[in-house]
Amino acid sequence: MISLRTRRRAINTFNLTMAVLMTVFGVFWLVWILWTTLRYGIGAIHLSLFTQDTPPPGSSGGGLRNAFVGSLILLGLAVVIGTPIGVLAGTWLAEFAARRKLGALVRFLNDILLSAPSIVIGLFAYSIVVDPSGHFSAFSGGVALALILIPVVVRTTDEMLRLVPGALREAAIALGTPYWKLVMRITWKAAASGILTGVLLGIARISGETAPLLFTALNNQFWSTDLSHPIANLPVVIFQFAMSPYRNWQQMAWAGAFVAIVFILLLSVVSRFILRRAKS
């Protein structure tokens, strides 16, 4: 008969060891995925990757220039469409609706939108832009990405504005400042770095998004900067190339994945850093 004390201690030791092992298990995947991307990606990086367009099937050479540029255009579009909408909505939540039921409801729905599957957002963008206009386009891809960016910006703007001390607002109001001026000149300014972080986090989130682009921006084997036509973009090119049987396409997909992952990890590390400083 094992004593109760021994049994409790044994259970404790076993479960805590499991917790440590689970953590190792979690970190293990990150290391494995990063290591793979690094190993296959770095070897495939050449200057031609940035100076040549995607090659046709079966031919050697080529690069991902059109995909990089296309992705930057899509990101730019999403930021231009999404940031003003996100900031204004976040401002309303923090400045005019912080204590109201309607504000709580909007905040709730925004959080749901934040976690909604991106493929559904893509289908939505398809049905409001592609279907009525009759053709796939870079613009519709930008709209899809903006829809994913907006809830991120709304949430961070709201959080950051609510961190601005009430005394600042009271001081401005005591001087007779109109509320709109107070918001634009004082609270936005005080929360600027936090709001910027929201946009950066949003960009990190959308720059790897693939699913919504399959029904909107599609892909383009050639160089194109026309917003009303399908456009090449990194995620869909990676998808297509990784699934292909061609070795040089797969290598190029790894190179693209490497560039994407470096871009995204840098963005999220930098924005986390800014956020931590803004909050403290």
């Binding site: 909408i85 996100g86 204004l88 909505a89 401002t91 309303w92 939540l93 400045e95 005019f96 609706a97 409801l105 909007v106 729905l109 925004n110 749901i112 939108l113 909604a116 559904v120 957002i121 289908l123 939505f124 049905s127 409001i128 279907d131 829809l147 907006i150 809830p151 709304v154 109109p178 509320y179 709109w180 918001v183």
Partner: peptide
């Protein structure tokens, strides 16, 4: 101006909140 600013931000916030409803209508329609 205050009135307009409040209404503008409120309208945009409502737009964001209604997106979910719009998604559902669009998918039902399609």
């Amino acid at each position: 101006v205050d009135f307009l600013f409040r209404k503008l931000t409120g309208a945009v916030a409502l737009l964001v909140a209604l997106t979910l409803l719009a998604i559902m209508f669009a998918l039902v329609d399609e």
